Amino acid sequence: MIVSWVRTHGRSRAIAEELSIKAIFLSEATARRSFPTKYLFAAIETVREIRRERPSSVILMLPPFPLLVLVRVCFPRLPVIADLHTGAFLNPKWRPFLKPTFALLREGSCIVTNSALQQQCNRAGVEAIVLHDPLPERMPEPGGRPFAHKPAVVLCPLGYANDEPIDELLFAAGHLVADEIEFRFTGKAPLSIRQAAPTNVLFTGYLTDEDYEAELANCDVVIALTTREHTMQRAGYEAMTAAKPQVTSDFEVLRDFHADAAIYVDPSDPQAISEAVTRALRDADALAGFARTRFEEVRADQSVAIDELRRVVKSAEARAPFGGRRTPSLRGKR
């Protein structure tokens, strides 16, 4: 079982599919609640699901730190593997809880997206493996509109988190109003951002998985920017899978992963972002080709990382078996 305290999450769903385990997300009602009530109802739902499923082990998407505390307190014998996102290390909201996180994982293991974070875990005495978001077995069939239409569409998948350069994106969009380039911001945007947006920015609001896939299929460029080093964005994986040109942050981990399949910019420079969008539209065919090539390269290496994750899960279960187990352990993906 993998538990994520969000409405849905592509990485968690992909890991669950690869391991043939159940993915647990927040109900729609709980996801809409505000803090701290949201965490209270999330805790109730999580405890109920674990008691009902009685899994052999559990993977927790972290942050938030309270999810780890809840499982350790309520199910002390349940083996835990943490999928530690960059926010656990660098987000000012969650960074103070990093040492307690490592302490609670001392008998467990964790998953990270790059070697720099793996080394930090290892120094803290916690076993860690590197796993990028699992890609599907094949790329979807080409769809959506041709690149030659007007206005061009730039998709900006956003959560309005503190590592997303929202102001810079708004300024960059403003630079391109006259070029008939439309920016589509996903997610629930705060009122202040909506009021500050130039006329070529549209806000989609919350999207279902199906609606988001349609947005991705019909865009010309994806922007996946972060101001936080060592961060891999889900939108970047999705852009590669869809063979979409993308603009992303000029950080080493992103260059190493995406190689020639992206254009890299300083996320604090609106002018550089707007110029990168123009270049991505101009070089769309070449970037799409690089994305297809890189997709195949990543897929070729992915099975090794998935096998390592299976080993980690089985090892955790062997060290701390959960009495009364009903849910089968890892089943090979068929």
Rank of each mutant, 00 (worst) to 15 (best):
V112K: 01
L131N: 08
L68I: 04
I111D: 01
L158A: 01
V265Q: 02
T241G: 04
D256P: 07
A82Y: 03
R138S: 14
V221S: 09
A173Y: 12
R292H: 15
A196N: 08
A172E: 00
E137L: 13
P96Q: 06
A217R: 15
L131D: 03
K188L: 13
G236C: 08
F290K: 15
E141L: 15
F25K: 03
L117Q: 12
I273R: 08
Q120I: 13
E127D: 14
R310S: 12
A286Y: 05
L90A: 10
N162V: 09
M240A: 14
A286M: 12
S192Y: 00
A42M: 04
T46A: 08
L225P: 00
A14D: 01
P76V: 11
V112S: 06
A189C: 12
T226L: 01
F41M: 08
P146D: 09
A239P: 06
G143Q: 10
D211G: 12
A197E: 03
V277N: 03
A305V: 04
L287V: 13
A43V: 01
L281G: 11
R77T: 12
R95D: 04
R184K: 12
V222E: 02
I44T: 05
V277K: 08
E28H: 13
E238L: 13
D301S: 07
E141C: 15
L90I: 05
E317N: 07
R95K: 13
N200M: 07
L26S: 02
I129V: 13
V221R: 08
T186P: 10
K22L: 10
G187C: 11
N91M: 01
I24A: 04
A42Y: 00
L84W: 10
Q233H: 11
A224S: 09
R145N: 12
T327Q: 13
A172L: 10
S268A: 11
E45P: 09
D179W: 07
G108E: 02
L117M: 14
P157W: 00
F25N: 03
G323V: 08
T204I: 03
H149L: 13
R334V: 02
E127K: 13
R11D: 06
V71I: 15
S12G: 02
F290W: 15
I21K: 03
E180N: 14
L104F: 03
D307R: 05
R138E: 13
M139F: 13
G174T: 06
P55D: 11
L169S: 07
T208N: 00
V222K: 01
P96H: 11
V71Q: 09
G323N: 02
A103M: 14
W5M: 07
L131H: 06
H149V: 11
